[in-house]
Structure formats: structure tokens, C-alpha cells
């Protein structure tokens, strides 16, 4: 079986989502981010073909929200808000998440990767957004890509075949 990948025509519409960045697009395009201990969250509404991605660095803002996309507790509400502004109903949104690796096997890194994951899971549960795919933990970085035309999310790890989540 072939490894999952997006077509070349879709690649022309790629948009990189950087550290602490939030991007929402409609109808078509690929949103792509690179993750270590950070969490990538892809939200999608199949009905309006609207997709958004946030690259979360830390679990809690503790009152500091600049940049807003850096923290799980500020990034996720902002991401949902931007999708709602494009006409999405929050009840139609589903989530896929990736990242939270422990790259250097230190206590701090493990703690942050795990805390990020816990924070994202808790927030999505509170907001009643189902998680339909997840590729988290481990010791390797990830490249995560969301195809906004289809809602498909592909995760790549160096030295391994890409996987669809």
C-alpha cells in the first residue's frame, strides 16, 4: 500500500504554521507545521470545508497571552473563534492532534510535552470537541499537515512512513 501524501497541486496551496501561530482557511489548501514537544491541533468542519491549525508551545498562559497562539488555553478558544467568524458552528468541529514528544529525554521536556497534551485534551473535552485522530508522545519530531479540502491529516516522522490520522 502507498504511503499517504497530498497531491502536488495541493502542495502549491501550502501554508506553513509557525511556532505559536494560528491559521484558518476555507475550501482548499494544506496547513503544515513542524512539532517537537509542542502540540499541533487541527480543527475541521466538514460541512463548510473550513480548517484551522494552531501550534501550541505551552499548556497555560497564566495571564500572559502574547502571542495568543503560544498557550493551549488561549490558542484553542482563538482558533475556534476564528472558525466561527467564517460561519462554522462549533458543534460541527472535530479535532486531530499531534506532537508532545520528549526529544531530549529530560525531565522538563517530558513534563512540558505531557502537560501540553493533558491541557489540550481537557480543553477540547470542556468545549465538547471530539478528537478523531491523535499521534502524540514518543521521542521524535513530527511534520503534521491538514488538507482543508478533505479534512485529512497526515503525520510524518523522520525515518518512518507517513501515517494518516
Amino acid at each position: 500500500m502507498d504511503s499517504p501524501s497530498f497531491s502536488k497541486s495541493n502542495r502549491q496551496l501550502e501554508r506553513k504554521v509557525g511556532i505559536a501561530e494560528i491559521v484558518v482557511v476555507r475550501n482548499e489548501g494544506i496547513l503544515r507545521t513542524l512539532l517537537g514537544s509542542c502540540i499541533g491541533i487541527a480543527l475541521y468542519d466538514q460541512r463548510t470545508r473550513t480548517g484551522g491549525m494552531a501550534h501550541i508551545v505551552l499548556p497555560r498562559s497564566n495571564g500572559v497571552s502574547d502571542p495568543i497562539g503560544k498557550y493551549a488555553d488561549t490558542a484553542i478558544p482563538e482558533l475556534i473563534g476564528q472558525m466561527i467568524q467564517l460561519g462554522v458552528k462549533s458543534s460541527y468541529i472535530s479535532a486531530k492532534i499531534a506532537g508532545g514528544a520528549n526529544m531530549f529525554a529530560t525531565k522538563t521536556q517530558r513534563s512540558i510535552g505531557d502537560q501540553n497534551l493533558v491541557a489540550v485534551n481537557e480543553l477540547l473535552q470542556q468545549l465538547m470537541i471530539p478528537i478523531s485522530g491523535s499521534h502524540c508522545g514518543g521521542t521524535q519530531g513530527r511534520r503534521m499537515a491538514l488538507n482543508v479540502s478533505t479534512g485529512e491529516v497526515i503525520v510524518e516522522v523522520v525515518g518512518q512512513s507517513p501515517v494518516r490520522i
Binding site: L34, L35, A101, M103, G141
Partner: peptide
């Protein structure tokens, strides 16, 4: 990935 390493 270079980005994954440097973020960490």
C-alpha cells in the same frame, strides 16, 4: 526535523 529539535 531541524524545527522540532530547536523548538525543544
Amino acid at each position: 526535523y531541524a524545527a522540532s529539535i530547536l523548538q525543544s
